[in-house]
Nucleic acid binder design. Structure first.
Lengths: 332, 332
DNA sequence: TTGTAGGCGTTATCAC
DNA sequence: GTGATAACGCCTACAA
């Protein structure tokens, strides 16, 4: 593999000068610089990041820990973070943890050996002790989507509780009283908080959900089954803690011969692209996914460089997107 | 940052012995080994991959180049590859290129400086010269989803042409004669091949598509617009070159008051999770996305290690998944 | 303006 | 069994 030495030989000079042109540091005569640059171009030479890191340079590596990227919400999030980070000069390890603390721990060990400069994580709920080694080494951690207890240096987490309230309130405002709730994965902190928020809002009206159905995985098929269970309790409206859950519910209702929103109102959460492209179009609470990813990248960058000039963006707000799956209940 | 030296001091021994326990090489007495292991555990020490690479070890790094991961097809693909690769001992840089050769080139330069051991790529169509430096260094490249002309060491690319034929044939078998085609992104090799295949199948029946609508981006909204254009030509059936395209078309048809499949048949391609969860459920050609990802990972591993014992899996077949969006046309 | 040399963390080679 | 040590590729004093 070509090294700085190869280039030096090619350009008939010393490694120091090559390093100087590579880094635009110190003095190099125009003539020498030209020779060196041509040698670099010829060889397609790229200096070894490893040697640079070893020498004491920053790694410009960051770890991104997400439950998955085969679910669109996280795919969008991952891509937006990776792009923003790349533009800031970092390269990312995007890791899918399947909500498993064991997997997270494995990836954390990898981050350590790769000397990542920072981590962005949407961690599984069950304990976060495996983040301790990162903290011990002063490696900044930005929590995204879910809090990380004492381990995060910064948190980009929307107000899931409020989100839950908004869903419930919308249905309440429409006049619904028999409301069911479903969602997954049940161990996810965001799901739990939305659930808590929704229940709280119902509670304020002296109501309780007629059924709460929680599942393990983030997929349509399971949501469909949960919805079948929920619908057995004859709600007039249904809260999907995610759009996936809500869309699964639309299908379950359809197969039961229910008309939406006439017989059943459904509201979701996230506003993933599919939400606007199901029939009927899904009413949902939108979170600005890409925007959150960009903010997380910026914050991590700020933490890594300790550069106070990077601005602290406020978290964008949640918005109710009213589409075609919610309406007042039929008067009894 | 703790190093092997720190551990040696802690365990009152030399770096050589620490290295020996780290790598299970050479002789270490049980007593010494215990001391060293405890020092390692105490410190949460992880040896620097950079130093290992520098020393001449393999980097165990691989680059994954995909147009995006915010589109579910690629998100699933990326995750399956990353997982399989991680289990094989590799860490991946998952990079979203937005179908841009310039972006690809930037990532390739990064791969070079990071000394990746291999690359998996679904490249944009426009030329692949920027892969030359990888080839020059003998870094294996596995093409996935799309061929890479002369640059790939191996190719995991389904027969898109056949896929196109299968879509057309299904509609032809049903009795359709006025068939429109839509899809995106139009510069994608896979899209072009499916289109070619579909046209060829129509041609064998002496037919031509009544309309071909191609777009730039992989999203529902654009597909919706394309479908509006296509439907102006009054086809009885419509081929979506991707499920995204087909789902956009379902909505366009719905908004035009068309009943599916009575007034219009629609077939898609890929069988992404949403395909089974739109109404009506989408008939489509399934490609086993995860499986393809696993195969790509295996093949790359084989190329990196040149270990002939890794089996060559055959590419899995395409299957028609008949759901509810296709039916015979209404007799005129 | 250019060149020489040391050291970053690791492993392999060689002595002891 | 164990411990020095050279070398990997790079950057940065420092010397010339």
């Amino acid at each position: 593999m070509a090294s700085i030495k190869t280039i030096a030989t090619l350009a008939q000079t010393s490694v120091a000068s090559v390093s100087r042109v590579l880094n635009n540091s110190g003095y190099v005569s125009a003539a020498l610089r030209a020779k060196i640059e041509s040698a670099i171009a010829q060889t397609n030479f790229q200096p070894s990041s490893d040697a640079r890191i070893l020498r004491g340079g920053k790694s410009h590596l960051v770890g991104i820990l997400l439950p998955s990227i085969d679910v669109q919400f996280f795919g969008i999030l991952a891509q937006s973070m990776e792009q923003a980070l790349f533009d800031l000069g970092y390269q990312s390890f995007i890791c899918s943890t399947a909500e498993s603390a064991a997997h997270e721990a494995r990836y954390v060990a990898m981050f350590l050996s790769r000397r990542v400069g920072g981590v962005i994580a949407a961690s599984a709920e069950a304990g976060a002790a495996h983040f301790a080694p990162l903290r011990a080494r002063g490696i900044p951690i930005v929590a995204i989507d879910r809090d990380l207890h004492g381990y995060a240096s910064d948190s980009i987490v929307i107000d899931h509780d409020l989100g839950g309230r908004m869903m419930a309130q919308h249905l309440l405002d429409l006049g619904h009283r028999k409301i069911a709730i479903l969602g997954a994965p049940q161990h996810s902190q965001s799901i739990k908080r939305r659930l808590a928020g929704a229940k709280a809002a119902l509670g304020q009206s002296g109501l309780q959900p007629v059924s709460v159905q929680l599942g393990m995985t983030h997929d349509f098929a399971q949501a469909y089954d949960l919805a079948r269970n929920a619908l057995a309790h004859r709600p007039t409206a249904l809260i999907g803690l995610t759009d996936i859950a809500a869309i699964g519910a639309i299908h379950a209702a359809h197969d039961l011969g229910l008309q939406i929103p006439r017989d059943l109102s459904i509201i979701g959460f996230d506003d993933i692209p599919s939400a606007a492209f199901v029939l009927p179009r899904l009413t949902t609470i939108a979170q600005p996914i890409r925007h959150l990813g960009h903010i997380a990248a910026q914050r991590l960058h700020r933490l890594i460089t300790s550069d106070p000039s990077v601005q602290m963006n406020a978290l964008p707000a949640l918005t109710l997107i009213q589409r075609d799956t919610t309406a007042p209940p039929i008067p009894a």
